[in-house]
Simulated scan of single mutants.
Amino acid sequence: MTALLVALGGAVGACLRFLTDRWVQARHDTGFPWGTLVVNATGSLLLGLLAGAGLFGIELPVLHPLVGIGLCGALTTYSTFGYESVRLIVDGARLFALLNVLGTVLVGLGAGATGLMIAAAAWS
Rank of each mutant, 00 (worst) to 15 (best):
A97R: 01
W23T: 11
T42A: 15
V24C: 08
Y83N: 13
G68P: 08
P65D: 11
V24D: 09
L37V: 13
S79N: 04
T30H: 08
C72A: 02
A97P: 06
T77W: 05
L71D: 07
Y83C: 03
N40C: 07
S79V: 00
H28N: 12
G31N: 10
H64D: 15
G31Q: 09
L45V: 01
G82H: 00
L75Q: 09
E59I: 02
A93P: 02
C72Q: 05
G92K: 02
I58M: 09
S44N: 08
D29S: 14
R22N: 14
S44E: 06
F96E: 13
W23Q: 11
G73Q: 11
F96P: 07
G48T: 03
G48V: 09
A51D: 13
G48M: 10
G52D: 03
V62H: 08
C72F: 07
A97V: 01
G57H: 13
H28E: 03
R22D: 14
S79R: 05
R27S: 11
L37R: 02
V86R: 07
I89Y: 09
G68H: 08
T42M: 10
V86H: 01
V67K: 03
S85L: 04
F32Y: 15
A53K: 08
E84S: 07
H64E: 14
R94F: 06
L88I: 09
V86N: 00
E84K: 08
G48D: 09
